[in-house]
């Protein structure tokens, strides 16, 4: 089913802070059109693994392959140039600006020396429409007036607008209510269906099973399980996360 080349492939990734080995030889893959959930308890190394992919903090060792080619990720800019976008938990939106202004922040469309607002407005609307977003009434609303779920939507749509091939979502549903969680998960699904590879970090296994195709479990800096969500269950994953079960047990 996933015989295609993965968008991103990590082989034998290591990272340590002083004497502490945080990542001990991680292998990890994410495919276009699939949602891969990265789960694990606090301190398992999820954030460190993601920071390396985002170019924020370089790995010590191992190989990163992007679309089959070996790449270096020395900076966030380098990661963005490849098409890797991260939506952090705090979203990084400017509340005083509207949706269009936020989506194009730092890469505004210009007409001579002035901003090309109509073009930006059109493309922002198109992107949101393409993701079947129906929860915002106007793209000229200030972000301050948006709900948490709507903000998450804007942040995700921004990464789509930047032609991301791999979108990494850090706890996208952590602060949301039931209805909004549902909306965001639907959006994540549509994002993957549009051909983007999605990595989602979550503590909420209910959400993970709802949206993810693959589940990768980290335990104390090791990848202890790579599962298809259709072939596993809640209890198994919890056991992997807590370390009471390893991949060998399955056979």
């Amino acid at each position: 089913m996933t015989s295609q080349t993965p968008i991103v492939e990590l082989i034998g990734i290591t990272k340590s802070f002083g004497p502490v080995d945080v990542l001990k030889g991680i292998d990890f893959t994410a495919y276009a059109g699939r949602v891969t959930a990265l789960v694990g308890d606090n301190g398992a190394g999820k954030s460190t693994l993601i920071k390396g992919l985002a170019g924020v903090q370089e790995y010590d060792g191992g190989v990163v392959k992007f679309e089959g080619k070996e790449v270096q990720l020395p900076s966030a800019r380098a990661a963005a140039a490849l098409g890797i976008e991260v939506v952090y938990q705090d979203l990084a939106l400017c509340e005083n600006l509207d949706i269009v202004q936020n989506m194009f922040l730092g890469r505004e469309a210009m007409l001579g020396i002035t901003l090309n607002e109509p073009q930006m407005e059109f493309e922002a609307s198109k992107t949101l429409t393409g993701l079947s977003v129906r929860t915002v009434s106007s793209v000229r609303q200030k972000v301050a007036s948006l709900s948490g779920g709507q903000r998450q939507t804007v942040a995700i749509a921004r990464s789509v607008l930047r032609n991301a091939k791999l979108v990494i979502l850090d706890e996208p549903t952590a602060a949301l209510g039931v209805a909004q969680t549902e909306q965001v998960l639907n959006l994540v699904r549509r994002l993957a269906d549009s051909g983007v590879a999605v990595i989602i970090i979550s503590h909420n296994l209910q959400d993970v099973f709802k949206v993810a195709d693959d589940i990768a479990v980290l335990y104390l800096g090791k990848m202890v399980a790579n599962l298809k969500s259709s072939e596993t269950n809640h209890l198994d994953v919890v056991q992997y996360i807590t370390g009471s079960r390893t991949m060998g047990d399955q056979e």
């Binding site: 407005e121 059109f122 609307s125 198109k126 949101l128 429409t129 393409g130 977003v133 129906r134 915002v136 009434s137 106007s138 793209v139 000229r140 609303q141």
Partner: peptide, 9 residues
């Protein structure tokens, strides 16, 4: 693609 989200205009 038709755009369905408003813009306040």
């Amino acid at each position: 693609m038709s755009v369905t989200i408003g813009s306040g205009h």
